[in-house]
Computed example of a mutant assay.
Amino acid sequence: MEWDAPDTPANAAAFGSSGGSAVPAAFPKVRVLTLAECGWHASLAAAIGPSTGKHSGAQTLAMELFPRLEPGMLLLADRGFYGFDQSCTVAESGADVLWRMSDGPTLSKVADPARRFLPVAGLRPEAESRSARAAASSRLD
């Protein structure tokens, strides 16, 4: 999420402004990424940073939050957060993770079973329902 910060020189220097140089936003923008508990939606930790510029994305902020994970936690992570460094950081925390993956990465067997990576396939109900609809419509033609 992004928040407007008070328009001070310190905030402008720390967080920058969205928009272009010709027409900047009225307030500096702060990007906030939280580690939240699913049941009560309580925030367990937060990382903040600029909303524009190099290394200002949510993936960069996530790397600050991954070490806050603990054994017994299950991280549900979207496909934009998957990567080797991210996987290693989460594994070192002792937490379990379920990544939502795009079709791009090819997952193979992991040589080190202590890492506890398990590629999961067939959990794409939207793709399965699309193919089922396509098969049904071809039968109707």
Results as ranks from 00 to 15, higher is better:
3 W>S: 14
7 D>T: 06
9 P>I: 14
10 A>C: 01
10 A>R: 01
11 N>L: 11
12 A>K: 11
12 A>W: 09
13 A>V: 06
13 A>C: 07
15 F>H: 07
17 S>Y: 07
17 S>F: 09
18 S>A: 14
19 G>L: 10
21 S>L: 10
21 S>E: 05
22 A>R: 10
23 V>H: 15
26 A>R: 14
28 P>E: 05
29 K>S: 07
30 V>G: 01
33 L>Y: 02
34 T>K: 06
35 L>I: 00
36 A>N: 10
36 A>M: 15
38 C>M: 12
38 C>G: 01
39 G>V: 04
42 A>R: 15
42 A>M: 15
43 S>M: 13
44 L>N: 05
45 A>T: 08
47 A>V: 13
47 A>W: 09
48 I>Y: 01
48 I>N: 00
50 P>W: 08
51 S>W: 08
51 S>R: 14
52 T>V: 12
56 S>R: 09
57 G>V: 05
57 G>C: 01
58 A>H: 07
59 Q>F: 10
59 Q>W: 09
60 T>G: 01
63 M>R: 14
65 L>S: 12
66 F>N: 09
69 L>F: 14
69 L>D: 09
69 L>I: 11
74 L>C: 02
75 L>F: 11
78 D>P: 00
78 D>Y: 02
80 G>N: 06
84 F>G: 10
85 D>E: 15
85 D>A: 14
86 Q>T: 15
87 S>H: 00
87 S>Q: 01
90 V>I: 10
90 V>E: 08
91 A>F: 13
91 A>E: 13
93 S>A: 14
96 D>P: 02
96 D>W: 04
97 V>M: 12
98 L>S: 07
98 L>R: 09
100 R>W: 00
100 R>Y: 09
102 S>F: 05
103 D>T: 11
106 T>P: 00
106 T>L: 13
107 L>E: 10
108 S>V: 06
108 S>T: 06
109 K>S: 09
112 D>I: 02
114 A>H: 06
115 R>T: 03
116 R>I: 03
117 F>P: 02
119 P>Y: 03
119 P>Q: 06
120 V>P: 00
120 V>H: 00
122 G>E: 03
122 G>Q: 08
125 P>G: 07
125 P>C: 14
126 E>K: 08
127 A>E: 00
127 A>Y: 00
127 A>C: 03
128 E>R: 12
129 S>P: 04
129 S>Y: 02
130 R>H: 05
130 R>V: 06
131 S>H: 04
132 A>L: 14
134 A>C: 03
140 L>M: 15
140 L>Y: 13
140 L>E: 15
140 L>Q: 11
141 D>I: 05
